[in-house]
Simulated assay, not measured.
Amino acid sequence: MSQTITVRTGGPADAATVAALHAESWRTAYADFVPADALGDGLAEERAVLWDIRLTADYGPAEMQPTLLIAEEADGTAAGFAYLVPEPDGRVLLDNLHVRPGRTGAGIGRRLLRAALDRVPGPLRLEVLRANTRAVAFYEREGGTRTAERLCDFPGGHQLPEYEYTWPAPISGRTP
């Protein structure tokens, strides 16, 4: 049975929930291609510190404020999240898009991506690990264009190949 999912803007009160979901998602989605020491002990605590800082920091002018999007089940359980970071060049980085393990394939990622695209004034870009073939296929199905390849720095001093995908600036009157 399909559950109703809503997407709302999050804030500092969501830091612990997002951190736990982030760590759980990494451990599940990245288990086959990220070194185990980058996903092991301390990951949840590191994510908790990261999200506390991200959601309470002063980023200056309103147009530079990041946006946290939370996808919630009808009962209020976080099913996923996305984090949008404005960049000085006018683009917006979709820094994270994670869906709770066990809920992937239910349209939650698509809802978050569409909500992100609806909120950005300029081009949207994201980075995805090359070995994360499920996510790569998703972003390509959703209209992302591969615009770069590089190495990404990962916890523990690991470097892993990644792709960048970009969506153009929104067209006025576009329907999602």
Rank of each mutant, 00 (worst) to 15 (best):
Y59V: 05
R54V: 07
L113C: 11
R47V: 04
A78W: 01
V120Q: 00
A116V: 07
E87G: 06
E63F: 04
P66D: 00
G80M: 01
R47D: 04
L129E: 06
R110F: 04
E87N: 13
T104N: 10
D58W: 01
L126H: 02
V85H: 01
R114T: 15
P121A: 14
D41N: 12
R111Y: 00
T77Q: 13
D52A: 14
T77I: 08
A62Q: 12
A82P: 07
A31D: 15
Y83N: 00
V92G: 03
A62G: 08
L129N: 08
D52R: 14
R54F: 09
Y30L: 07
V85T: 13
V128M: 11
A131I: 11
G42V: 03
L55W: 03
D89V: 07
Y59G: 03
R111W: 01
A36P: 10
P86Q: 05
L94A: 05
F81C: 10
A44V: 14
T67H: 03
T104L: 07
A78T: 14
R54C: 09
N96G: 07
A106H: 15
D37S: 11
M64R: 15
R91Q: 13
E73G: 04
L113A: 11
A38K: 06
G90A: 12
A82T: 06
G80P: 06
R119I: 13
R54M: 11
A79H: 06
A106W: 05
P86F: 01
E127Q: 08
A57V: 02
A115F: 05
A36R: 07
Y83W: 04
D32C: 11
P88G: 12
G80D: 09
R119G: 14
L112M: 06
L124F: 08
G90I: 12
V120D: 00
V128C: 13
G42S: 08
D75F: 05
L50I: 08
L113M: 07
V34P: 02
A82S: 13
R111E: 06
P123V: 09
W51P: 13
E72Y: 02
L124N: 06
I53M: 09
A82Q: 04
Y59A: 03
D95G: 15
N96D: 11
V34M: 10
A78M: 06
I70C: 12
A62H: 11
A79W: 02
V49K: 13
P123F: 02
D95R: 00
L39R: 02
L117R: 14
L69Y: 04
L97Y: 05
D41I: 10
D32R: 14
V128P: 08
R119F: 11
A57T: 12
R110W: 03
G90F: 08
L50M: 14
Y83G: 02
E45M: 01
E72T: 14
G42N: 04
G80A: 07
L97A: 03
Y59L: 02
R103T: 11
P61S: 14
R114D: 15
V128W: 03
D37K: 12
